[in-house]
Amino acid sequence: MKPPFQRLIDDHSAAVKRFLTASVGPTEAEDCFQETFIAALRAYPGLKRTDNLRGWLLTIARNKAIDHFRVTKRVSVGAVPELPHHDPPAIDPALIQAVASLPEKQRSAVALRYVTDLPFKDVADIMGCSPEAARRSVHEGIKKLREVWGS
C-alpha cells in the first residue's frame, strides 16, 4: 500500500526544507522545496519502492539543489530578515556561506548527515555512493568547515 501523499508532507516536509536551507540558503530554499514536492507528486504514482520515502524525497531535493547551483552558482542569505517575526532568526549567515563554499558532494553529505540527522548508510543511499565514501565526504566537509567558519 502506498501511503497517501499528504502523509509524506506531514512526515518529511520539515526535513526536506532543512536540508535545502543548508544546501542553497534560506532565500532559495523555499523555491527548491516547491520544485521538490511538485516533482515528487508527478512521480509518485509510478514509484515502485516505498520503503524509504524520506530518502526518495531527499534524493529529489538534492537534485533540485544541484540544478539551482548550476544556474546561480551562489547562495543568498539576504532574505533572512524578511522572515516572519515569530520565527527564531537562528540561521547564521556565516555558517550558510561556509557550507555553500564546499564542493557539492561534501555539502550534500554534511547537510544530510547533520542537518537532517541521517546515518551514513542513508546518506550513501541518497548520494548513490558507498557508506565509506559518504563518511569521507562528511569528514572532509567538516574539516573544511572548521577552517572556514571557525576563523
Binding site: 508532507i9 523555499e30 514536492f37 511538485i38 507528486l41 516572519p84 520565527d87 540561521i91 555558517l95 540527522d117
Partner: peptide, 27 residues
C-alpha cells in the same frame, strides 16, 4: 560545527503554496 548544523533553524515550508500549485497543475 556539528552541533551548530544539527540545531540549524529553517523556516517552515509553505504548504499552502504547494497545494495551490499542485491543484493548478492537476496533480
Amino acid at each position: 560545527i556539528e552541533e551548530e548544523l544539527r540545531n540549524m533553524n529553517a523556516p517552515a515550508p509553505d504548504i499552502t503554496a504547494l497545494l495551490d500549485r499542485a491543484m493548478t497543475e492537476d496533480l
